[in-house]
Amino acid sequence: MHNRGGVHLHEMAITQSVVQAVCDRMGDAQIRRVCLEIGTLSGVVADSVRFCFDLITEGTTLEGASLEIVQPAGRACCRDCGAEFVLNDLLVLCECGSANRELLAGEELKIREVEVMA
């Protein structure tokens, strides 16, 4: 599902949700910076969010704000051997060969903080 510019449409919806959530929380305050956490396993492409951000913030209190994206790495705990390991995608198995693992990090999709005009 791509539109022109190669941006996934759900990143458009995600970015709209960011703008809406910030406006809901911060009212009329002029936003200078937004810091998001987008985990590497979240299924959301950070570059696509960056691409959408300027377009979607136009005419809102976020217009002109800088966008900072922190991308926590994937981490899992094996339910069979108990080992904790890093995973770059959702298909990585534990070293013991088990697919039976619990994700500990990497699926974050949240607004960490904003910087507003004092």
Partner: peptide, 19 residues
């Protein structure tokens, strides 16, 4: 926006899809 230097940081820690 160029002249603004007085800003404060507000921690939100909110899910993007909270709504």
């Amino acid at each position: 926006h160029s002249r603004h230097s007085q800003t404060r940081t507000v921690t939100l820690e909110q899910a993007v899809l909270a709504r």
